[in-house]
Design a protein around this nucleic acid. Structure first.
Lengths: 160, 160
DNA sequence: TAGGTAGTCTGCAATATGTGCGAACGGCAA
DNA sequence: TTGCCGTTCGCACATATTGCAGACTACCTA
């Protein structure tokens, strides 16, 4: 994602307006490395601008994704996560607290024609799952990005 | 996933009962390579057993996942997918029709201590995204596993 | 094989994430 | 300053999945 000043120009150039709400989100996202979900961003944004709507947060995030300034990720944590880094990289995700960090690893993630089963591959996504340092130290800590999200990877023990 | 007969024993051994609903699902899942979602399984099951509840399908799938007989996957298609293969493999997913297939590729997906950022990695998941052969041939075909699912990867062009 | 018990099934309500819609609002170019 | 047209916001709605409670039934035991 380009810095806020550049985004302002980019939005105007596309006929999109630069509102205080959008500027706030540009600023919050810029340099963010926590891969926040929409709701997390909304909470932070509402702290600075009470009255901002969750709907507006979703709207702006979608705009940025459509412009290629932001990457939408599904890390299996129950809600979409947003990454201002749009270059080629992968992610480590904590299965307990849902923290996510960027990983730059060079590995052969190209699929050979034999393996691709007729698929025309556009993108390869690698997700490393495990426990972050904090959760290794405190196995009972619960600190989800998405409040009470139900992750696909928490283990499915339902039963009444 | 073990064959239905073995699952019957495994369920009884755990004090879980073997009902017709569960046996049907054992049979439907056995050897399935389409990575169905809960709703798809429910539709198929309801064809053979009218009256079966979607709730029961979710319940049984969760039981099987908890027993390690089934793998729950989040392939970014909007709903959880289920894979009776629980060995170490990865997936190709069609971004248009959401079809998924297994991929057995040997690649260095181990993260070096330097790259792991303090995380204790338990599992590495690779998802290859692209178009399947059918969708390459018919770019307008829409055939989602999850009826009208909203995929995280369809591109976010909202706007009214 | 009848009976009892504990696990199961089903329908419905509830929760979470995310989008459609319309009325009021407000950038920003002329 | 004005007006057009994109935005914001609140609410209803859509989808995925789970909680709950009452009726039901698999299956162990006598």
């Amino acid at each position: 994602m380009r810095p806020p000043a550049d985004l302002v120009s980019a939005f105007r150039a596309k006929g999109l307006k630069v509102t205080p709400q959008r500027q706030l989100l540009f600023r919050l996202l810029n340099g963010d490395e926590t891969h926040p979900c929409a709701d997390t961003l909304y909470t932070i944004a509402a702290g600075e601008m009470p009255g901002i709507s969750l709907r507006t947060v979703y709207q702006t995030l979608n705009d940025l994704v459509a412009m290629g300034e932001l990457q939408m990720l599904d890390l299996g944590t129950g809600s979409a996560r947003f990454d201002p880094k749009v270059d080629d990289h992968h992610h480590v995700v904590c299965t307990q607290c849902c923290a996510a960090r960027d990983v730059y690893v060079t590995m052969s993630t190209e699929l050979s024609p034999d393996d691709s089963l007729g698929f025309s591959i556009h993108k390869t996504q690698v997700v490393f799952r495990g426990l972050c340092a904090e959760c290794v130290a405190a196995p009972d800590r619960v600190l989800r990005t998405s409040s009470t999200s139900r992750s696909t990877y928490e283990g499915a023990s339902d039963h009444r």
